[in-house]
Design a binder for these strands. Structure first.
Length: 462
RNA sequence: GGCUGGGUGGCAGAAUGGCUAUGCAGCGGCCUGCAAAGCCGUGAAUGCCGGUUCGAUUCCGGCCUCAGCCUCCA
């Protein structure tokens, strides 16, 4: 029985889909004007894990993840670069898809873009204006009137009066209320724009998600996710827009993943303390990053550090070392471990405890190998790969992972290494331990670690 | 100022009203020419102060402290 922490109620609830057996899931994706950073990687991986587990549990999932391809920052960046907005966004959409694929993130079922959803967006704004929830302002913008929506603040736990008294709310002359937010922005000269009943302009950020999510999944759907920083105001505003427009509940379960922190501080564009995924991938294998993300609960803060990434690498080495040398046979279940694995995942996607179960399988697998129990080893290896696959992990060939190591450009080729190992085997045969140790040390300076087995020497990159 | 969520062994990081996390590191042993990997064993924790309870790290209250939201942000 799957339980999910619902941020709307701030507690774990038994998950009950609107339509039995089916799940509609919408996740706020990226604003494409730069490369993905580790925070984006976390959203991608966390909800990929959620989708994989929902499917493993037998649900038919319709996973929608949008792309914001028009907004102030994009327009600014395109202007700085002196390139058309569409060229800029396409470049970073392609980059994002590459990054997601590297992390083993499966493509969403639908990936709507703001710029190709303008009719939906203007239609929803029209409805909001007609119903009296929105008003055109003197400057050509259209604003949402928060005072008209009773439930405003229910997701973030904020009260309008507190928000108005907040330190950082700027007073804007054209708004009726400082908390009103923009649905449609009138175009300034040289800005990309679309026609609308209120003149040429572009959508405010929040409305696109209301329009696209209800279009793809219906007025009322199961799960909406995104980073914790989107809870307010973005998701709060989505609720206000969608529920005012449709007259029914928007979303049953709200899920937010925690931040990636660096030195105990949130990693963000505005603080300029972020690492792009591409930078990190120069140092660590993609699966190491995926493991690092899943080794903390999705709602906790995730502290980025070389030490923690190194720990993730070592943990994966343990798994792949256990899998190495065992014939790969596809097994479609986790055997005796499946129940505990699922109990962990059913508890609000507790991937950390699920990984602990995988370590137990690795331990049993190592014992089976030590006991020369080949049949048991093959079975356990299959179960480990199967359950690992539910998390999107351990699908690589063990030798490929272990010999791949860090970004080893230059240095010794596999053939060079094999030749040196052969020389060393000859030396060992002659009990020339000094020469054998010399070769081993020489390889170690290149971060090649040798492991002498029964009559065979294996190696890996450290 | 208003509102959230945290503080667990050397590190990372789960869980729990009484019993075991898990990984890394440490210590002892096995294996090895020596290592590495692996196996077996082992020490080590619940911010502070009260309360409830036979018993609290877990529930309640207060305090200290950290992070976050209230402005674009995954």
């Amino acid at each position: 029985m799957l339980k999910i922490h619902n941020n709307l109620s701030r507690q774990k609830e038994v998950f009950t889909p609107i339509t039995p057996g089916k799940v509609g899931l919408y996740v706020c994706g990226m604003t494409v004007y730069d490369y993905c950073h580790i925070g984006h990687a976390r959203v991608l991986v966390v909800f990929d894990m959620v989708v994989r587990y929902l499917r493993h549990s037998g649900y038919e999932v319709n996973y929608v993840r949008n792309i914001t391809d028009v907004d102030d920052k994009i327009i600014k960046r395109a202007h700085e670069n002196g390139e058309p907005m569409a060229a800029l966004t396409q470049r970073f959409i392609d980059a994002m898809h590459q990054d997601a694929a590297a992390l083993g993130v499966l493509p969403p079922d639908q990936e709507p873009k703001a710029t190709t959803s303008m009719e939906l967006i203007t239609a929803m704004i029209t409805t909001l204006v007609e119903k009296g929830y929105a008003y055109p302002a003197s400057n050509g913008d259209v604003y949402y009137d928060v005072s008209k929506f009773d439930g405003y603040g229910k997701l973030s736990g904020k009260k309008l009066e507190d928000l108005r008294a907040g330190e950082r709310v700027a007073v804007d002359e054209v708004k009726d209320d400082p908390m009103d937010f923009v649905l449609w922005k009138a175009a300034k000269p040289d800005e990309p724009s679309w026609d609308s009943p209120w003149g040429a302009g572009r959508p405010g950020w929040h409305i696109e998600c209301s329009a696209m999510s209800t279009d793809c999944l219906g007025n009322h759907f199961d799960i909406h996710g995104g980073g914790l920083d989107l809870q307010f105001p973005h998701h709060e505003n989505e609720i206000a827009q969608s529920e005012a427009a449709t007259g029914c509940q928007f979303v049953n379960v709200w899920m937010h993943n925690g931040f990636v922190q660096i030195n105990e501080e949130k990693m963000s564009k505005s603080l300029n303390n972020f690492f792009t995924l591409r930078e990190v991938l120069k140092q660590y294998a993609p699966e190491v990053i995926r493991y690092f993300i899943l080794a903390s609960h999705y709602r906790s803060a995730l502290n980025y550090s070389d030490q923690n990434l190194d720990g993730a690498k070592i943990a994966l080495e343990r798994f792949y070392t256990a899998l190495r040398g065992v014939e790969t046979v596809v097994i479609q279940n986790g055997g005796e471990y499946e129940a505990r694995f699922c109990n962990a995942m059913d508890d609000d996607f507790n991937s950390v405890e699920a990984l602990a179960v995988l370590f137990e399988i690795a331990n049993a697998l190592n014992r089976a190998k030590a006991d020369h129990n080949g049949a048991a080893a093959i079975q356990l290896a299959g179960q480990l790969r199967y359950l690992g696959g539910v998390l999107g992990l351990l699908q690589d060939d063990a030798d490929v992972f272990l010999k791949g190591g860090a970004q080893n450009t230059g240095g010794l080729s596999d053939a060079d290494i094999d030749a040196l190992i052969q020389q060393r085997l000859d030396a060992r045969k002659n009990k020339n331990w000094a020469e054998a140790d010399r070769i081993r040390d020489e390889l170690l300076t290149q971060k090649i670690i040798l492991e002498d087995g029964a009559g065979i020497t294996t190696w890996r990159r450290g």
